[in-house]
Design a protein around this nucleic acid. Structure first.
Length: 282
DNA sequence: GTTCTAGAAC
DNA sequence: GTTCTAGAAC
């Protein structure tokens, strides 16, 4: 690692090949370009034109083949760019770059944004909205969300009972209108410890036939007690006036991979997913 | 929540 | 060598 200073800029650069050393002046321009790109990214889409004029060809990028799976799972770049812009403008509004998990635009607030987006909505009434999960873990995977801001199951009380029952009714409706309802099984429930803010009821078909289902956490969050049945949640609210999440629920995500139909255990996600094909409707 | 990647496992 | 996972970063 060498360090040099030029025109007030301090530059550090690892030396891989000592004969490949750049002069201080060259290092300076490399650093200027790097910082320009960084600033440009921070400003989001404000400056869309390529400042260098080579469409970023000089910027190191990871080469990745366009895979169908990736396309099915990844959000459109335009959506990502819009979110980035939104995040930055929000930070500017507040006069600072905030890292708080509560800040609007943080990844865990994504559902609040999605539920307001008419393009995402597949059903809505005066109390709830239904959107498709952005990264569906099965052929059918919807989320039922209340318009009322309710951060998580923890804040639910008896007065939310009617609302939560309505969410269940809407979930049932979604299943009924599904063209494959007769051949697929569905479950409706909540994650014990959700990552995303705003209470959301998962309505998910039990085929788990999706390229977005990629890891143990995904699998166990829908196939262990980490997935809390909607009916059980309603019952808890009715009897206790609140929802209690079992201690150690997060540990459930680390359980071995076990088929939810025949309970057979598998060593890896690919092996499990291959097996799941055998349970698909013929 | 996702992506990315080091390093474990094979 | 490749596949896969786990954990950091976002």
């Amino acid at each position: 690692m060498i360090k040099c200073q030029f025109a007030g800029l301090s530059v550090r650069r690892p030396i891989i090949n000592p004969f490949d050393c750049l002069t201080y002046r060259q290092l300076f321009w490399v650093e200027v370009q790097r910082r320009l790109l960084k600033t440009e990214n921070a400003l989001g889409s404000k400056f869309k034109e390529d400042p260098i004029g080579d469409h970023g060809a000089r910027t190191k990028r990871r080469l990745q083949p366009a895979s169908e799976d990736k396309e099915r799972c990844r959000e459109a770049p335009s959506v990502k760019a819009a979110k980035q812009t939104e995040k930055v403008s929000e930070s500017i509004k507040h006069g600072e770059a905030t890292k708080s998990s509560e800040s609007f635009g943080h990844w865990n607030q994504g559902l609040k944004t999605s539920m307001q987006d008419s393009k995402m909505q597949v059903y809505k009434d005066d109390k709830v909205v239904v959107i498709k999960d952005k990264y569906p873990k099965a052929r059918y995977h919807w989320l039922v969300l209340p318009w009322q801001t309710i951060s998580s199951l923890k804040v639910l009380r008896e007065e939310h009972c009617a609302l939560v029952k309505h969410m269940q009714q809407v979930a049932d409706q979604m299943v009924q209108q599904c063209p494959d309802a007769s051949s697929l099984r569905f479950r409706t429930g909540y994650h014990a410890i959700p990552s995303m803010s705003q209470v959301h009821l998962h309505v998910i078909s039990q085929d788990f036939d999706s390229p977005c289902l990629k890891n143990k956490k995904h699998w166990n969050s829908f196939t262990t007690d980490y997935f809390m049945e909607s009916h059980d949640v309603i019952q808890m609210l009715e009897t206790n006036g609140r929802v209690t999440v079992k201690e150690g629920s997060s540990e459930l995500l680390k359980l071995p991979l076990r088929c939810h139909v025949c309970r057979k255990e598998f060593p890896t996600i690919p092996a499990l997913k291959e097996h799941l094909k055998s349970h698909l409707p013929s």
